[in-house]
Simulated assay, not measured.
Amino acid sequence: MTNLRSLDPSASPLDFYGSELRRLREEAGLSQEELGACIFCTGSLVGQIETTKRIPTRDFSERADAALGTGGTFSRLLGLVLRSRLPSWFQPYVELEARASYISTYQCQLVYGLLQTEEYARALLGVDHPDKFEEQVAARMERQRILDRGTPPALWVVLGEAVLHQEVGGRDVMAEQLRHLAGFARSPWVKIQVLPFAAGQHAGMMGSFNLLRFDEDPDLFYAENYDHGHMTANPQVMRERSVGYARLQACSLSPEESVQLIVRVTEERYG
Rank of each mutant, 00 (worst) to 15 (best):
49 I>C: 06
49 I>T: 09
49 I>S: 08
50 E>R: 01
53 K>T: 02
53 K>Y: 06
54 R>M: 09
55 I>N: 10
55 I>Q: 11
55 I>F: 10
56 P>M: 00
56 P>Y: 01
57 T>D: 14
61 S>K: 12
61 S>W: 15
64 A>I: 02
65 D>C: 02
66 A>S: 05
68 L>P: 03
70 T>K: 07
71 G>D: 12
71 G>Y: 12
71 G>L: 14
73 T>V: 04
74 F>M: 10
74 F>I: 09
74 F>C: 11
76 R>T: 13
76 R>W: 01
76 R>P: 05
77 L>P: 00
77 L>G: 03
78 L>Y: 06
79 G>E: 00
79 G>V: 05
79 G>K: 06
80 L>T: 01
81 V>A: 04
83 R>Q: 13
83 R>W: 05
84 S>M: 00
85 R>W: 05
86 L>P: 00
88 S>H: 15
89 W>F: 07
93 Y>Q: 05
95 E>Y: 00
96 L>A: 15
97 E>F: 04
97 E>Y: 06
97 E>P: 08
98 A>Q: 11
98 A>K: 08
100 A>F: 11
100 A>K: 07
102 Y>N: 04
103 I>E: 01
112 Y>E: 06
112 Y>R: 00
113 G>E: 03
114 L>I: 12
114 L>Q: 14
115 L>Y: 10
115 L>T: 08
116 Q>G: 08
118 E>Y: 07
118 E>C: 11
120 Y>D: 11
120 Y>C: 11
120 Y>P: 10
122 R>Q: 15
122 R>P: 10
124 L>Q: 11
125 L>R: 11
125 L>W: 14
126 G>K: 04
126 G>L: 02
127 V>R: 00
129 H>S: 04
129 H>R: 10
130 P>G: 00
131 D>L: 01
132 K>T: 14
135 E>A: 12
137 V>Y: 09
138 A>M: 09
139 A>R: 14
140 R>W: 00
141 M>D: 06
142 E>S: 09
142 E>L: 07
144 Q>F: 09
146 I>F: 07
148 D>A: 12
151 T>S: 02
152 P>G: 05
153 P>F: 13
154 A>I: 12
155 L>I: 15
156 W>G: 01
157 V>M: 08
157 V>T: 10
160 G>H: 15
160 G>Q: 15
161 E>S: 03
163 V>A: 14
164 L>I: 09
165 H>N: 07
165 H>T: 10
169 G>I: 03
170 G>R: 04
170 G>T: 03
170 G>Y: 07
170 G>F: 07
174 M>N: 12
174 M>Q: 09
174 M>T: 12
174 M>C: 14
174 M>F: 06
